[in-house]
Design a protein around this nucleic acid. Structure first.
Lengths: 110, 110
DNA sequence: AATAATTCTAACTTTTTAGTGAGTACCTAA
DNA sequence: TTAGGTACTCACTAAAAAGTTAGAATTATT
């Protein structure tokens, strides 16, 4: 269920680039962080804004991001349920990475 | 053999973040770019500096980086063979991404 | 004649990641 | 009473990425 952040004995487990990639290089991870951005976002909103993602992946990624403290989650005890997601301090620090990737892609790839 | 840079009809193929990730999110990709850095590096040197990588992955990644014009390759017609790799202009532009990831990892993860 | 060094290639297996499709519980509105 | 909206969970499958092992061509060295 959660992302393992696996390391491999053969290469440096403490490599900061590796560590960041282990956390962020999933197919949907940065998209989700970017969509949440500086807002407070409900699950359903995310489902709509991260186009193409399956519910399984969305929840799986959200859970892993919460576990890794990039995202915080607030559950309202209501029916029908309401759950809000937000970037933590740590999560906000990933936004410059997204920017950098976006800039590179925009200038050179797309 | 080469990385497909696959897209999925369901989500925006023109998303610059996706495009960058498709190119760079491989397990070894950024490591290789970082090791080449501003130098001219032989295959064997890379093999030693990117610790843990298999030859298959190294060549596979190098080929895909050359195909995608992030890396240039110079073959010397010698025996035993000598091949040098270098970052292109485009390849050099990925170094800030590595820096950003390194910084994030260093400050928050490692 | 055998060994080592160079840069790869190719076939195959395993592991990891992502996708699919169904179902749950509760309430509201038609 | 049926359908729709909420936020999920679960079992299974498929696809992608990475790992393993072996070997090739050439020359110099031992």
């Amino acid at each position: 269920m959660e992302k393992k952040l696996k390391t491999h004995p053969a290469y440096d487990e403490r490599c900061p680039v590796r560590a960041s990639l282990a956390l962020l290089s999933g197919k949907w991870t940065l998209m989700i962080l970017f969509q949440i951005n500086k807002n407070t976002v409900r699950y359903g909103e995310l489902k709509r804004s991260v186009t193409g993602i399956s519910e399984k992946m969305l929840i799986q990624e959200l859970n892993m991001l919460v576990e890794n403290k990039l995202v915080s989650k607030k559950v309202y005890p209501q029916i029908p349920p309401k759950v809000e997601y937000q970037l933590t301090e740590l999560g906000l620090k990933t936004l410059p990475i997204v920017d950098q990737l976006a800039e590179f892609g925009l200038e050179n790839l797309v």
